[in-house]
Design a protein around this nucleic acid. Structure first.
Lengths: 207, 207
DNA sequence: GTCTATATGAGGATAGAC
DNA sequence: GTCTATCCTCATATAGAC
């Protein structure tokens, strides 16, 4: 059954490449490393993927749409706005705090710019998709809840920026991850600022 | 005059290395590139710097303290809080929007983590120093102005996070820089949220 | 498709003359 | 200190047998 075996090996190679690229970046990973980790020969690797760049591109294509799925944003808002936002905020903060988000972040910052067509696709499927979902949620909250939001996209960016903060940068340069309590404080303070800044005004203009 | 010439060549090499590392990152730059750009031989380069790593470390040491100086934060606050913060915000946003901040950002995210001692020194001299200055300023504003700030360090992080936003990430992955008008809108909206979120409460608690 | 073995080139680092 | 020329390792990519 050569077809099955080929498919299995192909997955092995993609998995190995994904792990290695994520851990060390494009330049630091050799095709030898990938082949060895996948348990195949380099020639087999090249039989499936034309070049290191093509292989990297496939990894990015696979990873990109998953980014948005790591953070919980319900499609429809019902009830507790603060709780929903807290959930999103904790998801996003943990994503950056643990090693997984760090690897993706560093990989993208370091290497993605060399693949312009991937940039466009990733940006649409990742950050823009996430913002769109958060934005729809915030718009619903503005309508039904106590928030005053003129521009939901902008508000989504503000919340995301506050939650993200220096987390990915600090992790990327090698600082240790914050513990759970620190993440919690970080999330709570960001939420307080956001909710207060976007609270319906008792008097005065929009934020 | 061998001493003068040596010093001059040393500067040439440091300049070349700085430009090349900033543009392409540690891995993508070869010692040949640096020597050629500096107009010296590779052997001369190695006579001055023991290794590529040592050379990179020197570049980081030189760059680090400059980061905080690119953004205007007065030591003493007088008068117009919003104007002072706008000035800071515009400086920071431009820093990330133009190519210079992008290069430094990418260089640090990509390569700094491999030099742990540099991480500590850079972090103290760069982000922490900047936050300390902004924090002192915000504390003064809370005292004399209309802001309600319990934890100035936290507030400084919030403001910086809002201003920074996705700017460095978007630039790093290869998206085009925002134009002046977009930066201005970005800065103004972030400032409005910050000032409103940290406004002295007419009623209700701290943010 | 998969392997072993290798061609080809690039890059970090050094030897030795001046 | 500076150069030219070179060593050596390692990485991308391929040839050729099975």
């Amino acid at each position: 059954m050569p077809r099955e075996r080929a498919a299995r090996k192909s997955k092995q190679m993609l998995n190995a490449a994904q792990r290695l690229f994520a851990r060390s970046g494009y330049a630091a990973v050799s095709m030898d490393d990938i082949a060895k980790t996948a348990g195949v020969s380099k020639a087999t690797l090249y039989a499936h993927f034309d070049s290191k760049e093509k292989l990297f591109a496939e990894i990015i294509e696979i990873e990109s749409p998953h980014v948005e799925e790591r953070v919980p944003i319900p499609e429809v808002f019902e009830g507790d706005a603060e709780g929903v936002l807290r959930n999103f905020a904790r998801g996003l903060a943990s994503f950056f705090a643990d090693g997984r988000g760090l690897e993706i972040y560093r990989l993208f910052v370091t290497d993605l710019h060399r693949f312009p067509d991937l940039v466009r696709r990733f940006h649409a499927a990742g950050p823009m998709a996430l913002r769109a979902r958060l934005s729809r949620l915030l718009a619903q909250m503005a309508e039904r809840g106590g928030l005053s939001i003129d521009d939901p996209d902008l508000a989504a960016d503000h919340l995301t920026s506050l939650i993200q903060g220096r987390l990915p940068f600090d992790r990327a340069i090698g600082l240790p991850p914050p513990d759970a309590a620190a993440i919690d404080r970080h999330v709570e303070s960001a939420l307080r600022l956001f909710l207060r800044g976007y609270a319906r005004a008792s008097r005065g203009g929009e934020p």
